[in-house]
Design a protein around this nucleic acid. Structure first.
Length: 290
DNA sequence: AAAACTCGCAACCGCTAGCTC
DNA sequence: TGAGCTAGCGGTTGCGAGTTT
């Protein structure tokens, strides 16, 4: 069986017992980097041997992909990246590698860790299952708008002119999860761009609000965010995940509701979504998220 | 000051799809 | 066709660092 002594292909029992585990040393890292620089990736088991590493091929591959590869990004995820993760996870679930493909420089492991340590922590805090409809709804109504706000803050501070070029009519702070005609993930829409299929009525539109229920400042038009940023791979634009059919939200049982206010989550304990309590910082603490 | 606890992340494990022979 | 092997994925674990008691 894989994962046992037999998983290593040509590795016999004695070799297996001599294999090193645990944290990589600087020397091992250098060996691996040097070898891959000269010979390239692939054939990980033989690579491990040829490089003189007492590691499994699997371990070498992981170390390279998650840590040593030159274009690997380190450090905190940006709000843009977090937003994208939330969005893509709502569509694909725990398909970490697939999600990672859309965040250049980030690894599936990193994204998985982010989800488990940050997002699931919020779910625990709210005492709900992070895979539940309620939690997805919470993400959409509170977390994502705040991330968008954060994105706006960072983009306006780094490029004031870019942020101010959004001339779209945003008389309502409507956030639609997807725009069918534009390949965006999340956009502040003008009313004319809302389709019957994807629109949310104004009484129930997802709004960015602070804990007191105030409507937050208008949010930027998202196509700029995704269209211009380095992490948005233009090659992805024709991917079905962007050319969406609102399917990303169908899975959450929301899109078929023209009026979100009609959603009934049958909450018997605390109706924290509709009451607005959830938006209170005591329940939805964003401070630790970035 | 130190023990207990929590958190974040690197690394490992088990499984499986796909390829080769 | 099926056995063996490789690469890759998602889940889990272990450990060091930081925080709380």
């Amino acid at each position: 069986m894989r994962g046992t002594k037999n998983m290593n292909g040509s590795c016999n029992e004695e070799e297996f017992d001599q294999l090193k585990r645990g944290p990589w040393t600087l020397e091992e890292d250098n060996l691996l980097i040097r070898y891959i620089t000269c010979h390239g990736e692939g054939r990980w088991n033989s690579l491990a041997k040829s490089a003189g590493l007492k590691r499994t091929g699997k371990s070498c591959r992981l170390r390279w992909l998650n840590y040593l590869k030159p274009d690997t990004k380190r450090g905190n995820l940006t709000p843009q990246e977090q937003l994208l993760i939330l969005e893509l996870h709502s569509k694909w679930g725990n398909r970490w590698s697939k999600i990672a493909q859309h965040l250049p420089g980030r690894t599936d492991n990193e994204i998985k860790n982010y989800w488990r340590t940050r997002v699931q922590k919020q779910a625990r805090h709210l005492k709900i299952d992070c895979s539940s409809k309620r939690f997805v709804e919470a993400l959409q109504r509170f977390w994502m708008p705040r991330l968008l706000e954060k994105v706006e803050q960072t983009s306006s501070s780094s490029s004031a002119s870019t942020a101010s070029t959004s001339t779209m009519e945003t008389d309502q702070n409507k956030l639609i999860p997807y725009s069918q005609s534009e390949q965006t993930l999340f956009a502040v829409s003008s009313p004319t761009k809302l389709t019957n299929q994807g629109s949310l009525n104004s009484n129930s539109s997802i709004r960015a609000s602070d804990s007191s229920g105030k409507i937050l400042p208008q949010l930027p038009e998202m196509p700029q965010l995704y269209g211009n940023s380095a992490f948005y791979d233009s090659s992805v634009q024709n991917n079905d995940c962007y050319n969406v059919d609102i399917g990303g939200f169908d899975m959450m049982g929301l899109s078929q509701q023209d009026d979100m206010s009609s959603l009934n989550f049958q909450m018997t304990d605390t109706d924290w979504i509709s009451s607005g309590d959830m938006a209170a910082d005591t329940y939805w603490n964003m401070d630790g998220l970035w």
